[in-house]
Amino acid sequence: CHSECLGNCSQPDDPTKCVACRNFYLDGRCVETCPPPYYHFQDWRCVNFSFCQDLHHKCKNSRRQGCHQYVIHNNKCIPECPSGYTMNSSNLLCTPCLGPCPKVCHLLEGEKTIDSVTSAQELRGCTVINGSLIINIRGGNNLAAELEANLGLIEEISGYLKIRRSYALVSLSFFRKLRLIRGETLEIGNYSFYALDNQNLRQLWDWSKHNLTITQGKLFFHYNPKLCLSEIHKMEEVSGTKGRQERNDIALKTNGDQASCENELLKFSYIRTSFDKILLRWEPYWPPDFRDLLGFMLFYKEAPYQNVTEFDGQDACGSNSWTVVDIDPPLRSNDPKSQNHPGWLMRGLKPWTQYAIFVKTLVTFSDERRTYGAKSDIIYVQTDATNPSVPLDPISVSNSSSQIILKWKPPSDPNGNITHYLVFWERQAEDSELFELDYCLKGLKLPSRTWSPPFESEDSQKHNQSEYEDSAGECCSCPKTDSQILKELEESSFRKTFEDYLHNVVFVPRKT
C-alpha cells in the first residue's frame, strides 16, 4: 500500500485506493498535508475557505447554543480562536489581540433580562453583547459592586439597553466600559436606550469621564423622579442622539420631579488639616426662599486615587461607600458681607490618608415646582503625618564578641513616609551569675543571650482551647457569634421535631 494509506488498500502504491488515510483526505486521495488554498479540518480532512465560511455563517444565523462559528488559524479551520487571539470578521482569520481579548457573548432569543446578581454573573467577562440587555433589578445585597464585577467589562451592545423598574439602582456607572450601543435591534418605538419607572436612579454616568455613542435609535425617559433633566440632556449631547427624540420621548413632568437638581456650584473657602482632623468651610448658599434650606450634607471617604465619582458603590438597598454628615444651616444675616460661612470639623480620621470630599445642599421643593440647590466639586484632601507606631517583631542576635545583629519589621501604621529608623542602645553591667558559677561542674549549661522565638506554653494553649472559665478566673470563653447562636437554635429545633416524629412513629394507638 501507499505510504499515506492506513489499515489496508485495494490497489498497491495508489493513494486513492486506501481504506483510511494516515494524515489527511483531499478529493478522494490521501495526502501528507493540505496544500494551499485548503485548510486542515478536524485533523483528517482538507477543506477550502468557502466550506469553513459556510459553517461560520450557519452557526451565526441559527443562534443555536453550542454550535461553533468556525475560524481560520495556522492553516486550520477550527471552532474558535485560541487564547490571546480574536477573529477578523472580513476573512475569519485569528489575529493577536492588542491588550485583553474581546469576548463576544451571543444571547438566546436576542435579549437577556438581568433581574438578579445570579443572572448578571452569566455575563461575567463579556466585552461584546450580541443582542439586547434588559435591566430589571428590584433589590439585593452589595448590588453596585456585584454588577460592576460582572457587567463592568461590557464595551458594546449590538441591540438596545433597557432599564425598567430597577428600584435598587442609583447610577449606571457599573457599566464602566460601555462605549457603544449599535441599535441594530430596537425596542418598540425605535428606541435604543429605554429608561422607565426607576424610582431611585439619580445618575446615568459621570459624563466628564465617560463617552457613549448610540449609532441608531432614540432615547426614552419616563417616570424617573430623581433623575434630573440636565442629566438626560447631557446624554443626548454626548451620545449623538440630540435631535432624534420626539416631543413625548422625554417626559418633562415625570423626570426629576422629586430630585434636588443642583444648578449652582458650592466653593470651599477654608481648608485646614491635622493628622486626624480636617476643618472645612464653604461659601454660604440661600435659595430664593431661605426657609427652603434644610441644611447641608457632607460626604467623605478614603480615596487612594483621584478618580472618585459621587455615586460609586451606591445602591438604593443601603450600600453606600460614603460617610454622610448632616449639618444645620448657619444663622442668616441681613448683611451679605457678614454672612457666616458654614463648615464642619471632621474628626477621627487616619493620618497621612487622602480623602475625597464634597458637600451639597438639602432643600425642600418650592411652590413653583422649581428645584434649587448647590453642590461642590469633589475635592481631595490629605491629612498630615504623625509619629508612626512601633516597629514590629524586633530580633537581636550576637554573632561574635563585638557585634549584635538587630532586625525588625516595619510598623503596622507608618502614618507617613518613613525615611529612617533611630536605634538606641545602652551598655549593661555583666551578670554576677557568670562569676559565681563553678565551671568545672559536669552538665553545666552556660547562660545564653542568643534570641529564641517566643512560644506559647501548654497552660496558655489549654486556656485558649477551654470553653469555660478556669477556677483562677484568668480566662473566659469568647462570646458566641450570631451565626453560632442561630445554628444552635436550628439544631435544637431539629432535635425537638425529630423526637416528636419518633414518638408518633414508635407509639401507635392500640386498636379498641
Rank of each mutant, 00 (worst) to 15 (best):
M297R: 00
T215C: 11
N211S: 09
S158R: 11
K162M: 03
W352L: 05
R138A: 15
D276G: 15
G348L: 10
V128K: 06
L212W: 15
R164H: 15
Q203R: 12
E109K: 14
L331D: 11
L151T: 02
W207Q: 07
L219S: 10
N200V: 14
G313V: 07
V381E: 08
K226N: 04
D328A: 14
S274N: 06
S269C: 14
L153P: 12
Y285E: 00
E109I: 10
T323F: 13
E146W: 08
N320I: 04
K375L: 08
P288F: 11
E187Y: 03
R165L: 06
F175L: 11
Q121P: 02
P304E: 06
L298C: 15
Q245L: 12
P225W: 05
S321V: 08
K177V: 10
D328L: 06
R332L: 03
G313K: 15
Y194E: 15
P304Q: 02
E310W: 14
T185P: 13
F290T: 02
A356K: 05
L186A: 06
N307T: 08
P394G: 04
G318P: 12
H341I: 12
G295I: 02
L265T: 07
Q354I: 09
A356Y: 02
V363G: 05
S401K: 12
Q199S: 06
T185W: 11
H106P: 08
A316L: 10
S333P: 07
A195S: 12
P304D: 10
D315I: 11
S319D: 09
S132G: 07
E283S: 13
S173F: 09
E146L: 02
E283Y: 12
G125V: 07
G189P: 15
L219V: 09
I188C: 03
L298V: 08
E155N: 08
E283N: 13
Q314H: 14
I157L: 05
D257V: 14
V381R: 13
L180A: 11
G343S: 08
D276R: 06
W344K: 12
S208V: 11
T361L: 00
S239C: 13
L298M: 13
L293T: 01
S400Y: 14
N211C: 08
L143G: 09
V128A: 10
D206S: 08
L406S: 01
I163F: 02
I379M: 15
S171A: 07
S158N: 10
T185L: 09
V308K: 09
Q403M: 09
S401H: 06
N190Y: 09
E246W: 03
A149L: 06
G189F: 14
I232C: 10
F268P: 06
D115F: 07
P225L: 01
Q314E: 13
K242E: 10
W322D: 11
H222Q: 07
I163Q: 02
I114T: 01
G217A: 05
C126F: 02
L219T: 14
